[in-house]
Design a protein around this nucleic acid. Sequence first.
DNA 1: CCTCCATGTTTACAGGAGAAACTTATGAAG
DNA 2: CTTCATAAGTTTCTCCTGTAAACATGGAGG
Lengths: 202, 202
Amino acid sequence: MSETKDRSYHHGDLRRALIDTALDMLATDQNWTFTLREVARRTGVSHAAPYKHFRDREELLRELARIGFERLAETMTRAMFSDGLSVREKFMAGAQACIDFALCNPGLYRLMFSADADKTVDQPLHDAAMRTFHILLQLLEEGQRDGSFRPIPISGQAAACWAQVHGLAMLVIGGQLLEEKVGKEPVSAALNVLLNGVCCDT
Amino acid sequence: MSETKDRSYHHGDLRRALIDTALDMLATDQNWTFTLREVARRTGVSHAAPYKHFRDREELLRELARIGFERLAETMTRAMFSDGLSVREKFMAGAQACIDFALCNPGLYRLMFSADADKTVDQPLHDAAMRTFHILLQLLEEGQRDGSFRPIPISGQAAACWAQVHGLAMLVIGGQLLEEKVGKEPVSAALNVLLNGVCCDT
DNA sequence: CCTCCATGTTTACAGGAGAAACTTATGAAG
DNA sequence: CTTCATAAGTTTCTCCTGTAAACATGGAGG
C-alpha cells in the first residue's frame, strides 16, 4: 500500500506520512514541542501542506494520542489474554504492559494524558481512551465474578487501579522512581501493595 | 514590603510581580501556554524586562512549579498534623489535601509534574519536590513503627502511595473520574482500596 | 555631587502559526 | 480522448513570539 511513490506534486498519503514523521519526532525528542513546519519539512512538503489534513497543530497531536490509545489497548490486551492466566496474573500482566508501553513511548504516553489531548473536543480520541479503560473494567468484573477480587463497587476499585497504574507509569517515565528514592523493584512492589487491597486473600 | 509603588522606571519587585501575573494566568487558563510577552504586558512592563529576572521562559515556569511544591507541602502538612489523628487518618487527610490542591490548582499541579518542570536542571525545584515526597515517607515510617502499616520495604509502599495519590489527582483534574465512568465517590473509594493493601487490619 | 550598576526600554531579527490566493494532477462525465 | 471540477500542494503574507543587543535611568555608595 505504501509503495514509495516519489512523484512530485501529489504525495499519495501525506496524512499518514505526516503522522509517521510526528510520531518519530515524538519518540526521538520525548516531547511534542516540535513545530508543524518542522514536521512538514522533514516530510518533504511545504509548510502549509499539513493544513490540508489537520485543522491545526493540536488536531495532529490529538490524532497521535488516539493512535497511542489504540496501540496501548492492543498491547495490554495481548499481554493479558495470551495464555490461561489467573485473574491476578492477568492484572499484573496488563499493568506491566501499560507501564512498559509508557517506558518505551514516554513522549507518546505523556501526550495521551496531557491537556493537549483534550478528549472533550475529539470524539474518536475520547472513544479510544474509553476502550482502553474498559479493558480494566472487564478484568475487574471477571475478578469479582470468580471471587478473586473483593466484591466492592466496581467504580472505586477501577479508580484505584487506574490511578495506580497510570500514576506509576508517570512516575517511572519521569525518572522519579529511582533507586535512591524508592528502592529496587518499586513497580512490582507497588502493584503488589495495590493487589493486597484488591484481592480477597490477604 | 510590597507597598504599591507605581514609580515609573524601577518597579520595586518586578520578579515577584511577574510570578504573580504568571500564577494568575496559570490559574485562569489552566495551562501554561501563555507567552512571556503577555506576562510582561499584563504586569505593565516592556516585553524584554522579564529577561532581567529569568534566563528564559522555562526558568519562570520552573519557579512557578517550585512555588507549587512549597504550597503543596504546606497544605499537606497542615492537613495531616492539625489534630491528634491516627496514622490512617493522617494518610487520608494528606492524600485528600493533595487531591484538593490539584483540583483547586489544576494548571499549577499539572505544570509541577510536567516535563516543563525539569527537576534535573533546577536544584531548588528538585529540593522542593523532594521535601514534599518526604512527607509521605515520614508518615509511612510512623505507620510501620506503630504497627498500623504492614512492615514491608518502605520503598514499594511509598511508590504505591505516591503513584496512587498522584494518579488520582491527575485523573480527577483531567475529568476522567466522572460519575458515568467510575461512580460517585471514586477518590475516597480508591484510597480505601489502597489502604486495605497498606494497613495491617484487613 | 558624581558615577556605577541593576533594572528598565527600544530596536532588531529569526522563526512559527495560520489565512488566502494560486497551481497542478487526477479521475469522472461527456 | 478531452474537459474540467476538485483535492491536494505551493507561495506569499501578516501577525506574533522568543531572545539578543544596545541604550536609558535612577538610586546607592564613595
